[in-house]
Design a protein around this nucleic acid. Structure first.
Length: 290
DNA sequence: CCCATTTGACCCAG
DNA sequence: CTGGGTCAAATGGG
């Protein structure tokens, strides 16, 4: 229910809706190309990816300007000096934890289902476990090990959702800003896991898309990549999504204009992939939430 | 001794 | 008020 940015200005709202629709349309075209199988190395695909990137970059840029630097900025980068609310309240009154933490609000998240507990290449520290109502299995809460020494805001929840074919749902929140990766080379595009399962579902949810136009045409932007989608094509779509997310973080570090004009280099992309912990794609579903 | 996990209490959003 | 997310003391392993 957090749509403060939507209410900011009608001008921004229209801009966001326009850019989302553009991105949506480009994505649809890209999807068509992927399905027709004529995308390998084609300049059309690259062109579309560039357009999608541009649209979503602009969208994020507008969002970053419109929001009060709370949700989007705060959840992605903790570049700003950490407000000492945490420390102060902890040190002053150890037994009174009222107001000592903020519950995560509508931060970006994406979920993946897997049949086993796979290592995503990041160091996680478990900090909680809760039994969830109407759920057979407890939910486990993890944060990045480098939350405090590097201010990494990434966290994840893992919950077993099925027993017989064991199925674990991992939901990731926030982005890794830490630099500790266990094995980077294996994580990104180095595997042939793309083609041995039933395909991958990419779902770009938009919980903040209260914009009428956006909701109308953009309720759920899904890409289903068939099992025979080649790794290259898959990488393009995922790259699109990941760079989108990386953009917001990048804009905190460098200036938006830098990013917009130059665009992400392949190196940037690799780094974003890492920090997003988009790992191997052996699993069934990979789902993003914005 | 250090660090990760466990676990009950605490806190907040809905 | 309740469910769920987080904290932090206690505990255990290396």
């Amino acid at each position: 229910m957090d749509c403060s940015w939507v209410e900011s200005t009608p001008f921004d709202r229209k801009k966001v809706a326009d850019q989302l629709l553009r991105g949506h349309e480009f994505a649809r075209q890209l999807q068509a190309q992927l399905r027709s199988g004529s995308s390998c190395g084609g300049t059309d695909s690259d062109d579309l990816v560039a357009k999608i990137l541009s649209s979503f970059s602009k969208t994020i840029s507008v969002l970053n300007r419109s929001s009060d630097a709370d949700d989007i900025n705060g959840s992605i980068v903790d570049n700003s000096p950490p407000e000492e609310s945490e420390d102060s309240c902890r040190s002053s009154t150890p037994n009174d934890r009222r107001g000592c933490y903020k519950r995560r609000r509508n931060s970006h998240s994406w979920a993946r289902d897997s049949s086993s507990l796979v290592d995503d290449g990041h160091a996680w520290r478990k900090y909680g476990q809760k039994s969830i109502q109407n759920a057979k299995f407890p939910r486990n809460y993890y944060r990045c090990t480098h939350k405090f020494d590097q201010g990494c805001q990434a966290s994840k929840q893992v919950q077993q959702v099925e027993e017989h074919p064991p199925k674990f749902r991992t939901t990731y929140y926030g982005h890794h800003t830490c630099t500790n990766f266990l094995n980077t080379s294996d994580i990104v595009l180095g595997s042939s896991n793309f083609d041995d399962s039933g395909g991958v579902l990419l779902s770009f949810d938009s919980p903040t898309a209260a914009t009428p136009a956006a909701v109308h045409d953009h309720e759920r932007n899904q890409f289903f990549l068939p099992a025979d989608t080649d790794a290259d094509a898959m990488a393009r779509v995922v790259k699109t999504e990941v760079v989108m997310r990386g953009t917001a973080a990048a804009e905190e570090v460098c200036s938006p204009s830098d990013y917009m004009s130059a665009g992400p280099s392949p190196d940037d992309f690799s780094e974003v992939m890492m920090s997003g912990s988009i790992g191997d794609f052996e699993d069934d579903v990979l789902q993003f939430h914005f």
